[in-house]
């Protein structure tokens, strides 16, 4: 359980998140939606313990994240950031091995290599394993970074716009994989994901958190939260919500 209590975050002296109170239960996919600049990325960074809080606190399983060591933090929460770029001459396998850093601290062992192989396999990257990361297409690179976050082996995966560069098939594959990972089981993950494609949110998320101007605009199960009125209000543009095969479908009008 991640609990956020009365959290405010300031960046460069400007308050970008205020009065955030949120709880995330284990398992499932939570979609974080909201307009550009709403504070979605800031929220993920703060939840990962990478940003100092102006007030309030974030606890994971009862532990304040601000007090955790870097290693404990990185074994609990994996964060995929929005703008990943790497200058070093890494292969995909090297990059994913860095995801194991909190476990091996620079000296990967057999267990780490096995975890890397499994992550590459899961995200259909095995064939690209020995390719250099700066020689990949944008979507391939993005999948490599998702695999890296997965390989970290954390109960919590926080992904900031992992679909941004993916074609429809890979977007669907990735969401189905994340959805499957978040179902109950021995290695269940809790996935919190920033998406701009509302139909992806409608299709794969269990729960919606809507942010606007640094505040929570709405949270709840998707069937309740994803309404035409809420979305129109959130994005300041008219949106209609229909239902196809039992899933909400969002159309801007």
């Amino acid at each position: 359980m991640i609990r956020i209590e009365n959290m405010s975050v300031a960046r460069q002296g400007i308050t970008t998140l205020s009065d955030i109170n949120l709880g995330f239960g284990e398992g499932g996919v939570t979609a974080l939606i909201g307009p550009n600049g709403a504070g979605k990325s800031t929220l993920l960074h703060a939840m990962s313990g990478l940003l100092p809080l102006a007030s309030g606190r974030v606890t994971i399983a009862g532990q304040d994240i601000a007090g955790a060591t870097a290693q404990v933090r990185a074994r609990t929460v994996a964060l995929l950031t929005q703008s990943e770029h790497v200058t070093a001459r890494l292969t995909v396998a090297d990059l994913v091995t860095f995801g194991r850093w909190p476990h091996h601290r620079g000296r990967p062992g057999p267990a780490d290599h096995a975890a890397v192989a499994q992550a590459l396999d899961l995200f259909a990257l095995t064939d690209l394993g020995q390719r250099q990361i700066d020689r990949l297409s944008g979507g391939q690179r993005q999948r490599a970074f998702v695999a890296m976050a997965y390989a970290q082996g954390t109960p919590w995966m926080l992904l900031d716009e992992p679909l941004a560069a993916l074609d429809p098939r890979h977007a669907r594959d990735l969401m189905e994989r994340l959805h499957a990972l978040s179902r109950p089981g021995p290695r269940q993950r809790s996935v919190i994901i920033v998406v701009h494609d509302l139909n992806i949110a409608a299709r794969y998320a269990d729960r919606i958190v809507a942010l606007k101007d640094g505040r929570i605009a709405r949270t709840g199960p998707k069937v309740i939260a994803l309404t035409s009125a809420m979305l129109s209000d959130l994005f300041d543009t008219r949106m209609a919500v229909d239902a196809v095969n039992g899933h909400p479908v969002v159309v801007p009008v």
Binding site: R73, T81, V86, F98, W101, G106
Partner: peptide, 18 residues
Amino acid sequence: PSLDAAALGSTTARAIGL
């Protein structure tokens, strides 16, 4: 080895616990 991780950039490096 820590410098290897640091070369990923400070945000990514911190995210993996450096």
